[in-house]
Design a protein around this nucleic acid. Structure first.
Lengths: 127, 127
DNA sequence: ATGCCTGCAAATAATTTGCATTTGC
DNA sequence: GCAAATGCAAATTATTTGCAGGCAT
C-alpha cells in the first residue's frame, strides 16, 4: 500500500477544490470546474488523481444509487443525504449512526470495518 | 407511473431466480444463470426486466461501492453487508436501523423517504 | 537523472437503444 | 390485432490504459 507520490498542481487543485465545496461532486463536475484554471487538464488526470486520493484515504467515493459516482473530501465518518429531485449529495446529522458498526459486529458473524449510510428523499430546498 | 405489463417467461424466470438466491447477484450473474434454461436469452432482456422490476418495487438495486451493481428481491427494508474479500453481498441484522429515518427527519431539514445502509468488512467465511 | 505525472487518443466495461420479429391478452 | 417483450447488434456513457513527453525531487 506504500506510494511514492510527487506533487502536481493538478492534484493539489483537485483536492483543494473538493475540500472547498460543501456538496459532493462528480468527476465530470470537478473536471469542468478545474478547466477554468487549467484549461487543458485531462479528464483522465482527474480520474487518476481521484483514485490516488481515495487510496490515500484523503477522499472517499460515494455511490448514490442512481449510478452516479460522487467524491467527498472526508474529515470524519458521516452520513449522506441524496435529494431525489435535485440529486444533490450532502452531509447529514445522524447521531445514532456512530454505534451501528458495533451493533452489527455483535449481532452478526462478521467483522465490520466500515459502513456507509445514505438517506434519500427531498432536501431542504426541494421539499 | 402506471405500467401495462404483460407476462413473459423470461421476466418470470428472472424474478424467481432472484427470489430463490440468498445473496444479491449482478446482472451478469443472473444472465449466465438464466442462459442455462433459456439458452438464447439476451443480456438486454435481463437489464430491461431488472429495470421494470425495480420500477414496480419488486426488487431493488444495490450499489456496493466498488462500482458493481447488485439486485435484491426485497420483502422488507433491511441492511446489507459486503465482504471486502469475496465481494459477496448479503443481508444483516441491524435492529436500531429501523429508527434512523425518523431520527434523520427530526434532526435535519429534509424529508426522508428511503435509506440504504451498507456495512463492509469480512464475512463469516472470510474473516 | 529518475521516475512520477500529464495530455491525448484509443480501449474497455457496463448498460441502453433501435429495429424487425415474436408473443401475450 | 395491437401493444408489449424479445434477440441481436450498434450506440452510449463512464472510466481506464498505453504511450511519448514534461515536471518534481
Amino acid at each position: 500500500m506504500e506510494m511514492n507520490l510527487k506533487h502536481s498542481k493538478q492534484r493539489d487543485a483537485l483536492f483543494e477544490l473538493l475540500q472547498s465545496v460543501n456538496n459532493h461532486p462528480t468527476a465530470e463536475w470537478l473536471y469542468q470546474e478545474l478547466k477554468k484554471d487549467y484549461s487543458n487538464i485531462s479528464l483522465a488526470t482527474v480520474y487518476r488523481n481521484l483514485a490516488v486520493l481515495c487510496q490515500c484515504g484523503e477522499i472517499i467515493k460515494i455511490e448514490v444509487g442512481d449510478g452516479t459516482v460522487h467524491y467527498d473530501a472526508v474529515n470524519a465518518p458521516h452520513c449522506h443525504f441524496i435529494c431525489g429531485k435535485c440529486k444533490s449529495v450532502t452531509d447529514i446529522d445522524v447521531p445514532s449512526a456512530v454505534n451501528l458498526n458495533d451493533e452489527v459486529n455483535s449481532l452478526n458473524d462478521v467483522i465490520v470495518t466500515d459502513s456507509s449510510l445514505v438517506f434519500r428523499g427531498l432536501c431542504s430546498k426541494c421539499k
